[in-house]
């Protein structure tokens, strides 16, 4: 192998790296808004949603090629999962804080009032996070404006299943919200 080969291989490597970086930037520009939107749909918190979206892209870039055909589907699904995990973590934290507050405040505050304060408008998100991952994800992705085909691709299921999955997920969420409210 001579100098020509070496030059060609170095140039090839440089081109490959540059092309990969370009692909990642293009993917980011094309999908960031949508990925952040999916996270926001779950979290109802723009700042936290952007944190999640950026983590998702960092993870993706660490593990996958930006030109992978499944890139967008991966990002959508990861955004939903990561955001749902945040809500679950948030719920555990709130439960812990509530329990501490109730211990401390039992002498001075009405526990029933404490409970009512904790069951604020976020109980829908908490109910969503209590669903199994697949129904929760199908709801979030569809509510975020993904088409049936895009949702199917993100979940790795056939497009014909989406109607059924959506119907079951919506029924389950309504039930879970009612259950959560009556706790």
């Amino acid at each position: 192998m001579g100098a020509n080969f070496e030059m060609a291989s170095k140039a090839g490597t440089r081109n490959a790296v540059t092309s990969n970086e370009d692909s990642f930037e293009a993917l980011f520009s094309a999908e960031y808004g949508r990925v952040a939107g999916i996270a926001n749909r779950v979290l109802a918190d723009p700042h936290e949603a952007e944190d999640v979206a950026q983590e998702v892209f960092i993870d993706f870039n660490r593990l996958h090629s930006a030109s992978a055909p499944y890139a967008a589907a991966w990002l959508y699904r990861a955004a939903a999962h990561k955001a749902l995990n945040r809500v679950r973590g948030r719920r555990r934290r709130e439960k812990r804080e509530l329990s501490q507050a109730m211990d401390e405040g039992a002498r001075t505050m009405d526990p029933q009032h404490m409970l009512e304060v904790s069951e604020d408008r976020r109980h829908v998100r908490q109910a969503l996070a209590r669903l199994a991952p697949k129904p929760a994800t199908v709801l979030v992705l569809r509510a975020s404006g993904l088409s049936y085909a895009e949702v199917a691709q993100a979940l790795g299921v056939g497009i014909g299943q989406i109607g059924t999955l959506l119907r079951r997920a919506e029924a389950a969420l309504r039930k879970e919200v009612i259950r959560g409210t009556s706790l």
């Binding site: 980011f28 960031y32 808004g33 309504r174």
Partner: peptide, 20 residues
Amino acid sequence: RAVAGALAVPDLKVDVASAF
């Protein structure tokens, strides 16, 4: 409809360049 309403959020405005 009920679920769509429950999951509705205000539109998110993002600054793609600074996020990148």
